[in-house]
Amino acid sequence: MATLNKMEKKKVLLMGKSGSGKSSMRNIIFSNYRAKDVRRLGATIDVEHSNIKFLGNLTLNLWDCGGQDAFTGTYLTTQKSHVFSNVGVLIYVFDVESRSFDRDLATYTSITNALAEFSPSADVFALVHKIDLVNPEFRVKVVANREAAIQEASGPFAKSLKVFGTSIWDQSLYKAWGSIVNSLIPNLDVMERYLWGLMGETKAEEITLFEKATFLAVMKVTSEIGKKNPYPDRDEKMSNIIKTFKASLAKFTGDTAGPDFCEKFCISAPKFALIIEELTKNTYVMVVLPPGEAEANCARLNIGIARKRFASMDVLSGQEHDEGQDEGSGGN
């Protein structure tokens, strides 16, 4: 399987009917768009390709495929092998408001059949999108209903299929995309050991590693106390909170490429302390601690020391270096 020192490129297809919200999601997750900014997007013509460097040696090759019928037609005919070969992940977006769900399912089935032909080992994610338009009481039920129908239409992917209800207006988007990128990144057990090491040196309750551009959580370690945090969805909550602020910063500075969140951020509250620092070129680390200035200072020193250790891992930094440091890396 994936080795850590080899550059990897994974093809990700983003498909679904026109207007279902594909480009909106892409721009929020990978660029500094805010949910309220995406209304201005026009329909995607053909396919928009983007290469996203993710964790150093992993590049996501994202194909945002315009969903108008004419385009879908060519994906399934003349361009079939071009579009569907070498796919790592297919993300198929269903608009929850669609008035022709049966037709959407039929298109979806043709797409999954083509995928089965050219990339049988791909992972498939189906997103039931714009869930914000459904009365909160019914959201779970609506997603469950759609999930059953989508699964039936998934052919050979029915077993491994994952379905999420999503909306650009809340953290559900980050939950789904967190799960998607986690299916793409290679084995990170060395990194996990390093995080436990850092945990031992500080009084941390939880240490989470976020990818820098998307602020999606890629790994976390939690102490017994940290496990008492009443929010099981805190990773996607954090992604949402930080991304929203980053987008706001980008708007203020007029820097469309997007400023970094900030190198060091520390908040000392009555019940907790929290540090977010850049760890490597592509990651941020977040450390949650009990309150107290001494603990926070100690943690910050230890992060500084750990930074050197992490930098030697090319999965995070994307830097070339000698083989000797790749201890314990490899497949799973």
Binding site: T253, P259, C262, K264, F265, I267, S268
Partner: peptide, 16 residues
Amino acid sequence: DSKMKAQQIYIEECGF
């Protein structure tokens, strides 16, 4: 102590 301590926030080398 759950008493309100002065809340401190540091930000270093921020993009703005």
